[in-house]
Design a protein around this nucleic acid. Structure first.
Lengths: 105, 105
DNA sequence: TATATATGAAACCAAAAGGTGTTATAAAAG
DNA sequence: CTTTTATAACACCTTTTGGTTTCATATATA
């Protein structure tokens, strides 16, 4: 979770807490406090998760007074979508083959 | 990479080597040796990656003589596809807003 | 049978991940 | 001005990751 290392989108979504944070931000922008209050983990831990998400460009932040507000920036998820899409032909074929098999009987 | 821990599909695809292995297996089933020869890493390292992929049910293996042949089992990737799909509405909205903005000018 | 080949398994390691708690600082409120 | 609130910055800890090397075993093949 080191902030120095470069995290890509795949690493960012590997953690369930981070996936939950993304869902939360999809509904509504939120401050660090608001996000941290949602989880049993410490605020520090949440901040680190947010840093990982930001390195992966899945969120961005803005300052509002003393609060830091995070918002969702989902564009990078397209990379994941496209990567997964490549494999669709294989599971589609699987289903297709199964369908043929069933129809032959 | 411990074989004891339970890895889910998100963790499995977080590593670039594992993603590459999946692409390789999509083209053609392969033995441990065949897979390991593709990478600069040691065979042992590749075996561990394969174990992670297997825990996530993204590959399965069969024995053929002294060789262990791995093949792709992509169904679990549907979970990822669906998770990502949820966020499509947000990046679509972004594009929609951008489109409106352009049309107003 | 002797040898080469493919895998299994163990011990070990450095670094990163994921988390904690403490202390400091900036901004808003009383 | 004092107090509260929200965040920042450290230092620290444990477990997991991703990798290594070494040795053993099972299976083909000359």
């Amino acid at each position: 979770m080191a902030a120095t290392a470069r995290h890509d989108v795949y690493q960012a979504i590997a953690d369930p807490t981070r996936r939950q944070i993304l869902k939360q931000l999809a509904e509504k922008d939120a401050s660090i406090k608001e996000i941290a209050d949602t989880y049993s983990q410490s605020r520090t831990a949440i901040v680190k998760h947010l840093q990982v998400l930001q390195e992966a460009q899945l969120v961005r932040d803005r300052k509002e007074g003393r609060a830091k507000i995070y918002s969702l920036q989902p564009a990078q998820l397209m990379e994941v979508k496209e990567w997964v899409s490549f494999f669709e032909q294989y599971w589609d074929n699987k289903l297709g083959n199964l369908k043929n098999l069933v129809e032959e009987e």
